[in-house]
Design a protein around this nucleic acid. Structure first.
Length: 878
RNA sequence: GGGCGCGUAGCUCAGUUGGUUCAGAGCACCUGGUUUACACCCAGGGGGUCGGGGGUUCGAAUCCCUCCGCGCCCACCA
């Protein structure tokens, strides 16, 4: 056989990925087999592959490849998300670089640029997933703004609207003044900041007295419509019914009373600015207060801003304080620390804004989603600990603000026929809208040109919540073959950060639009962090270049590296050295194949030790396979990988191959060789989901395979019965072997020098594995004895005594005696504690029989071991 | 402020209902080894009062209380 070259991951990976693609192994069509379906969490088209993607797509690929090997019709649907805010920001940015302002473009031209951008960059991340080995059915690639996908979104909007679940309302929303859009609550981060708390004096009308209020946002003074105190606060009873003068603009506003005000905070007086604070708005509603909005969309002051009009809110704040100070109205300034809302996208400080938005009522929709996960367990959450979080969120859910003031996205299909905010109809297109409008208004003179479509688009999540349904066109064609076959999907793999944004909403959509769950299992990965536990992010620059890692270590190695420390739901501290561990493993596997590949096979007799070793490994493999299955069933993928890792590295390479390895330049018998190849193939089958490339490469090297014999479509090994005794006997034997190795090391006996081994078989072991000891320990003679052996070093495994005779001058009798006495002392202490337990009547009365029996066995073990040590001691004493 | 969770070897983590196999794994570390697959290796080895204290129990890493430290989610007080 030819000498194999070293393993070069980049060549091998490219070769097999093209081969897999060419032969359509990834593609899936409905057939008679059981389906196994995963829909990818669609990455943003603006995204580049980062470690989080690498992790959860590796996991999905492992699940898909295993399902494929198990004979299921495995279908992994890939795609991307239009990510309205993020993409629009990118496009605006790229236009700016070309000297174009978004404001100068109308909707249509902007969208043209956006689609152009999407065509250029939108597919990059999917190409990167291919490098990782992801076996998605690429022919099914979807985009959340594909025509049919958008059609689904629009028709569900209309459906929900017709059910009375969508309404328009003025609400306090999070306004991002930089992106000039509303943000969902989830897109706002709160950071703790130190700010000034200004105490400002307001004059009481027609009196020479002042009251003081505290505020962190003095510019909103211009929007004040009342001063509010707690009705039980006696300090202010004398001012009841009075008017207060707002500084600077000298408006007269009422003093009102409301329970909301905390007597002990600040001065006990609250300035009420309904346009700029949610709680103030609620107070305002209770007291019929005027709403005075003082800000423009870009957070500069508007016409209510007096001489500060046009100035940014923070500039205005400073100037207002200066002016108030000059007027002697600033009582004092304190430093407080409080939380400030920051836009996740632009980092701008969020302005609470009173705005006209579209909402979806959630209260009823959410009910089946609570029941299915928490009560019926139709959907299982891994790890389970997220159930509490899930429950808490769903039970406290608020109505969903689904409108966004952007161009990029599905435009809300509402058409206004009049000036009033509720003078609209909802329809698929403008023509339908016209007839609906005519019917509604009874105004036959309405023309198309009288209708104006709502300019807002829908929240991105309002399209991605349909993803598991809409990728199979299950909204537009609810009874098509694909949706009937693939839906509900099996597993969803994603990060816990979008449990609410996306996962919960998909469940809601599943029950609302398909009457069933969208998937059966949710696997939440951890977040990938760096070694210092920081979240990986672009701004910190601590995220490694995923593609470079693949180039340096190979995709298989990166997959292994990521997975090794990624137990479900735990954040994982990523460190490049993990990839190195993966690479070492690849190297180990490759070299084990090189060894076997180099053997010359002859039709000679099979040695006993080979036969036994192979028997042992086949049983060991089965027992590990059972463990692997168990780990998979509980979604403990890193544990499953660790099983494979140890199986191949320790059991296969370190034990089996060392045992059956022929002597240098000697041939191997055919029986053993064939068995080893068979074993190797089974190893590759369980390895394949984790390390698809190297496993396929070796598989195809072992023999010439036809197209339908590729590893990717071979079969996962079947679980068979395990001979546990064989494994136990081998464990015993391996302890003997380790002990001999220890003695060789301690006594400096080179492996090249053969030694004798004498056994005092107190355990009455059958001796059939002795040939393994002889092979691995270079034993010249293995003798069973009834008496102690003098001039030897002894050790025990269980109660068996083993003696390795050595030269007199290589043995230090005193040292040996001390060693044995220590061993004896320990075991006697152990015996004592066991007996103490057994003589404790409360233990004997209360503990179950099984536990008592265990203690009795321990007692017996200890006794026979003590006897064996004493035997050895007496032989040394002589 | 409200809720959830965590603390086990130098690091990252397993440890089902308290009881064989419970004090474990991988990595790192230490010692020795290289003409004969692999130094990306082999063999051997040392590491832990299971965050502290108290309790329940015949028996606690596991259950309860308390203190200390950390993380996440939700709400957000002018």
């Amino acid at each position: 056989m030819s000498v194999l070259p070293n393993y070069i991951s980049s060549e091998v990976e490219q070769k097999w990925y093209s081969y897999w693609l060419k032969n359509k192994y990834f593609s899936s069509k409905p057939d008679h087999r059981e389906p196994y379906t995963i829909v990818i969490p669609p990455p943003n088209i603006t995204g580049v592959l980062h470690m989080g993607h690498m992790l959860n797509n590796t996991i999905q690929d492992i699940l898909i490849r295993r399902a494929r090997l198990k004979g299921k019709n495995a279908c992994w649907v890939p795609g991307t998300d239009h990510a309205s805010i993020a993409t629009e920001a990118k496009v605006v940015d790229s236009l700016k670089k070309q000297g174009i302002n978004k404001e100068d473009l109308d909707r249509e031209s902007f969208l043209k640029h956006a689609w152009e951008w999407k065509e250029n960059y939108g597919g990059i991340i999917l190409d990167q997933l291919k490098k990782l080995g992801c076996s998605c059915d690429w022919d099914r690639t979807k985009f959340t703004m594909d025509e049919d996908m958008s059609k689904s979104v629009i028709s569900t909007f209309i459906d929900l609207h017709n059910k009375g679940l969508i309404y328009k309302g003025y609400r306090m929303v999070n306004w991002d003044p930089e992106a000039k859009t509303t943000l969902s609550d989830e897109e706002v981060n709160y950071v703790e900041r130190k700010d000034n708390l200004y105490y400002i004096k307001y004059k009481v009308e027609n009196e020479d007295s002042y009251i003081t209020i505290a505020t962190t946002r003095p510019e909103t003074i211009l929007g004040d419509s009342a001063i509010c105190v707690n009705p039980t606060d006696k300090r202010f009873h004398k001012l009841k019914g009075k008017k207060i003068i707002v500084p600077l603009c000298n408006r007269s506003i009422p003093l009102i009373e409301d329970d909301y005000v905390d007597i002990d905070f600040g001065t006990g007086c609250l300035k009420v600015t309904p346009a700029h604070d949610l709680n103030d708005k609620l107070i305002g509603d209770r007291h019929n207060l005027e709403v005075i909005d003082i800000l423009n969309d870009d957070a500069t002051l508007n016409r209510h801003g007096l001489e500060f009009e046009g100035k940014d809110r923070f500039v205005a704040r400073k100037e207002i304080i200066d002016k108030l100070t000059k007027q002697g109205l600033v009582d004092k300034i304190e430093q407080i620390s409080h939380n400030v809302g920051i836009s996740e996208r632009t980092n701008a400080i969020i302005e609470p804004k009173f705005s006209d938005q579209w909402f979806l009522k959630m209260e009823e929709l959410v009910k089946p989603a609570i029941k299915s996960v928490l009560k019926d367990e139709e959907i299982k959450l891994f790890p389970k600990k997220f159930e509490n979080t899930y429950k808490h969120w769903l039970e406290n859910i608020r109505d969903w603000n689904i409108s966004r003031q952007l161009y990029w996205g599905q435009q809300i299909p509402a058409f206004y026929y009049g000036k009033g905010k509720n003078d609209y109809v909802v329809a698929t297109n403008i023509k339908d809208a016209l007839s609906v409008a005519i019917e509604k208004t009874n105004n036959k003179n309405l023309k198309l040109s009288d209708l104006k479509q709502e300019s807002d688009v829908l929240d991105t999540w309002f399209s991605s919540w349909l993803w598991p349904i809409s990728v199979f066109d299950g909204i537009n064609n609810p009874d098509n073959d694909e949706i009937n076959y693939y839906y509900p999907t099996n597993d969803l793999v994603t990060g816990p950060d979008i449990l609410f944004f996306w996962v919960a909403r998909m469940i809601i959509a599943g029950y609302e639009f398909k009457n069933t769950k969208p998937f059966s299992n949710i696997y939440l990965t951890g977040l990938v962090r760096d070694k210092q536990r920081r979240k990986m992010s672009k701004s910190l620059g601590n995220s490694p270049d995923a593609l470079k890692l693949i180039k340096d270590y190979g995709a298989d190695s990166v997959r292994v590296g990521l997975l090794l420390s990624a137990s479900a739901g735990n954040d994982l501290m990523f460190d490049e050295s993990l990839c190195q561990q993966g690479k070492s493993f690849s190297n180990k596997i490759w070299n084990s194949y090189k060894l076997i590949n180099g053997w010359s096979v002859e039709d000679i007799e099979q040695p006993e030790y080979s036969k036994l070793s192979i028997q042992w490994y086949e049983n060991k493999f089965q027992s590990v396979l059972v463990e692997i299955e168990d780990h998979f069933n509980k979604y403990r993928l890193s544990d499953a990988l660790m099983c494979v890792y140890k199986l191949i590295w320790d059991d296969f390479c370190s034990w089996l191959l060392e045992l059956i390895k022929p002597e240098y330049q000697h041939p191997i018998d055919k029986l053993t060789f064939d068995s080893v190849i068979n074993i190797f193939e089974n190893n590759l089958r369980v390895l394949h989901p984790f390390m698809p490339f190297i496993s396929e490469e070796i598989w195809q090297n072992i023999s010439n395979r036809s197209v339908n014999e590729a590893l990717i479509v071979s079969a996962w090994p079947k679980v068979e019965s395990v001979n546990r005794k064989m494994i136990k006997d081998f464990d015993f034997t391996s302890q003997v072997i380790s002990s001999i190795r220890t003695i060789r090391k301690e006594k400096n006996i080179s492996f090249k020098n053969s030694i004798e081994l004498h056994v005092l078989n107190n355990e009455n072991n059958s001796s059939n594995l002795d040939s393994l000891i002889i092979k691995l320990c270079n034993i010249s003679k293995l003798v069973y004895t009834k008496i102690e052996v003098e001039n030897s070093i002894s050790f025990r495994v269980k109660s068996n005594n083993y003696y390795v005779p050595v030269d007199n001058n290589n043995i230090n009798i005193e040292e040996e005696i001390i060693k044995l006495k220590k061993e004896l002392q320990y075991i006697e202490g152990f015996l004592n504690s066991v007996r103490k337990k057994l003589s404790n009547s409360r233990f004997v009365e209360n503990a179950p029989d099984k536990v008592i029996q265990i203690e009795k066995d321990k007692e017996q073990d200890a006794l026979s071991k003590i006897k064996a040590i004493k035997d050895s001691l007496s032989s040394l004493d002589r």
